[in-house]
Write a protein that binds this DNA or RNA. Structure first.
Length: 684
DNA sequence: ATAGGGTTAG
């Protein structure tokens, strides 16, 4: 009998049999069969069994199979268990198994190290990774090309570019994969020039580049917004027939979208033979980032029509567009969609929603979500900090930043933009200077134009115009339009005609076609009663075909957005709105409101001016909000341009006499107006 | 029998 069993068992237990075990049930049946066999399982079989359990995600059974084979534990067996943990993303356990391996006196082999290094790089355990690197050197495996490549990858994924480079330079044998690891590392770390340099060297040295290399070159071109070379690559890809590859297709799509050639991106998308979730997501998020909110929603729906189920990234992709238009109800319904579809715990979705809530004026909801996220990324911290800053809550922003540092998080350059702009919006000059310094000394971040813009903005608003000018002079790069714009804004607040004129001239030299700058300078002249200059500015604008964009304000009532322009009489409730406005004006005048006619308008009689101010879009929206919402509800208004000074004063009085909180989002910040005061401290 | 590099996203 025993003999027959053996015979029958022999073909049955060949290791290959597990490859066809697609289900755990089948695998367990085979496992049971082996255990019934009178002879002990052979090593090959156990290893295959452990690996198969690992692939199917049943680690308990993998360990069980591992333990059933205590006779000859060796590196092979341990490796397969480590791989089982790796493939289930249980990287700490992989290292744990390695420790057990060493403790039981088994030496790792050359196959062990890539597995361990992968575990470290995937879970950002750089310190452990460096230790493993040391072990591999000691045991003489560091010159193995597989070990080397995994090491390059680990250092690159952890931002240790120098160490990766050293590893690469020290390698004795290099093949496409090791070159690609270096190339990929540079693109992943945002160093497209270096990446292209590596690619050129590869070609010079005759390395056979493959589709991985090409994907990364496209990626690098995409980062450089270097469409010229990108197009060349595209035609090259086309010729070699790589285009059918979906990953290359997606990389191309991303490149065109990043170079603001969305039309071309769409064309590539249309031409893709199979469109997977990633390709859809890419186009959705590109549309959203280019402000095409309707397109991104349409694509989101179309994608579902084509039978694909959106994942967290799909939803996170449209959320920046939602944040941009600041429609709270839309943000909430996206949040609802996330909950209904089990995407509300997705890290990207949660983080994007923080931004949506903050930019829609609901900071409390943003903070609630922030506190809820168990493992907050740098982006989550940065969004929340920037949220507080834009609403004028600088102290809260800085407190959160300190908390972030205390929890051992490394801020990046975006975090610092949030911190510095928070200081700028609230006039925290002393703190701003200090953080600007610490950014360099403590975190090694070289300030870029955006950081300088925050600083100039901060100093100029605070009236430290000379210091702002000095800072501009010490900038390592050419001042951007944004820099001069910030200085010009400060000159407007502090009525500095000369410097304002200087800043504006620099802007006009740079061919800035933003009509806002012309209007700013014109307003500076108006405030100084220099009417002939004002007229000249108007003529200049007309000559250059620039027009001040029409201002509008919107307010959400229920699920509907109501939009107003100045003197708007198109609304169905127009009569009631003007009546309400009339009452409000009477009430706030009693409370001490005096219309700010001086700067806002000129060339008109005073009583006419008052009348014109009275029907500004902000005021119409406020009146409508007061009519349509229950007492005590905050009124959230959005304006496309900067807030008008008179409307700002009026809003403060309105908040006082009605007891309402008014949250007003203008082109660059929020005003929280409560009990007659605003978080901007009249300073914006 | 066990090992290395590639696509989207705040």
């Amino acid at each position: 009998m025993a003999c027959i069993d053996q015979k029958n068992l022999q073909p049955f237990v060949s290791p290959q049999i597990f490859d066809s075990c697609k289900s755990l049930k089948l695998l367990k049946q085979s496992h049971a069969q082996i255990l019934k066999s009178p002879s002990p399982p052979n090593p090959k079989l156990t290893i295959k069994l452990v690996a198969s359990y690992g692939k199917l995600g049943d680690l308990d059974s993998a360990v069980l199979a591992f333990d059933q084979f205590p006779q000859y534990p060796d590196a092979f067996l341990f490796n397969s268990l480590i791989q089982a943990y790796n493939s289930n993303s249980l990287f700490r356990w992989s290292l744990e198994i390695y420790t057990q391996m060493l403790n039981s006196g088994i030496s790792p082999n050359q196959y062990t190290f890539p597995l361990l290094v992968k575990a470290c790089s995937s879970s950002f355990m750089l310190r452990h990774g460096t230790q493993i690197h040391g072990h591999s050197v000691k045991l003489g495996f560091s010159s193995n090309p597989f070990v080397g490549v995994s090491m390059i990858d680990m250092y690159m994924k952890n931002g240790e570019i120098e160490s990766a480079r050293l590893m690469f330079d020290g390698m004795l044998e290099r093949d496409v994969v090791s070159w690609n690891a270096l190339l990929t590392g540079y693109t992943q770390n945002g160093k497209p020039e270096e990446a292209l340099g590596v690619y050129n060297r590869m070609r010079k040295e005759g390395v056979d580049t493959n589709f991985v290399s090409i994907t990364n070159v496209i990626n690098a071109c995409s980062q450089m917004r270097f469409l010229h070379q990108g197009k060349w690559i595209h035609s090259w890809v086309f010729k070699t027939g790589f285009e059918a590859d979906i990953i290359i297709g997606t990389a191309l799509l991303d490149m065109y979208a990043n170079s603001a050639d969305l039309g071309f991106a769409k064309q590539i998308f249309e031409e893709m033979i199979t469109k997977d979730l990633i390709a859809w997501n890419c186009l959705i998020s590109c549309s959203a980032q280019n402000g095409l909110i309707e397109d991104s929603f349409k694509l989101f729906i179309e994608m579902q029509g084509s039978g694909l189920k959106p994942n967290g990234s799909s939803l996170a992709g449209i959320l920046p567009a939602v944040a941009r238009c600041g429609a709270l109800h839309l943000g909430k319904s996206c949040h609802g969609f996330a909950i209904r579809n089990g995407l509300d715990l997705d890290e990207y979705v949660m983080t994007a929603l923080i931004d949506v809530y903050a930019k829609s004026g609901d900071l409390i909801a943003a903070r609630r979500l922030f506190d809820f996220i168990p493992t907050k990324s740098v982006v989550a911290w940065s969004s929340m900090i920037a949220g507080y800053g834009s609403h004028g809550f600088c102290a809260e922003a800085l407190m959160l930043f300190e908390k972030m540092l205390a929890s051992k998080f490394k801020p990046n350059y975006i975090t610092y933009i949030g911190v510095l702009s928070a200081c700028a919006h609230s006039g925290f000059v002393k703190e701003g200077r200090e953080y600007f310094r610490r950014m360099v000394t403590q975190h090694g971040i070289i300030p870029n134009v955006q950081h300088y813009t925050c600083m100039v903005d901060m100093l100029a608003r605070a009236g430290l115009l000379d210091e702002a000018m000095d800072l501009i002079k010490t900038m390592p790069t050419e001042p951007s339009p944004g820099i001069w714009g910030a200085l010009l804004g400060g000159c407007k607040i502090h009525s500095h005609v000369e410097l304002g004129k200087f800043a504006a001239e620099r802007l006009f030299e740079l061919n800035s076609s933003d009509p806002g700058f012309y209007v700013l300078l014109s307003n500076i002249y108006a405030a100084a009663n220099m009417w002939s200059e004002v007229r000249k500015m108007r003529e200049l604008m007309r000559e250059r075909g620039l027009r001040k964009p029409a201002g509008w304000s919107s307010i959400e009532i229920g699920k509907k957005v109501h939009c107003f322009i100045s003197h708007d009489i198109s609304h169905a409730d127009s009569n009631v709105i003007y009546q309400k406005l009339e009452e409000l004006m009477e009430e706030i005048c009693k409370a001490g409101y005096i219309p700010e006619t001086k700067v806002v308008l000129h060339d008109v009689e005073d009583d006419v001016k008052e009348d014109m101010l009275r029907s500004h879009s902000e005021k119409l929206a406020m009146a409508y909000g007061l009519l349509k919402t229950a007492p005590g509800t905050p009124i959230r208004i959005m304006k496309n341009l900067r807030t008008c000074e008179d409307c700002h004063v009026a809003a403060k009085f309105i908040s006082k006499v009605t007891g309402r909180e008014i949250v007003l989002r203008d082109a660059i910040r929020f005003h929280h107006i409560k009990e007659g005061a605003c978080t901007c401290r009249d300073y914006w």
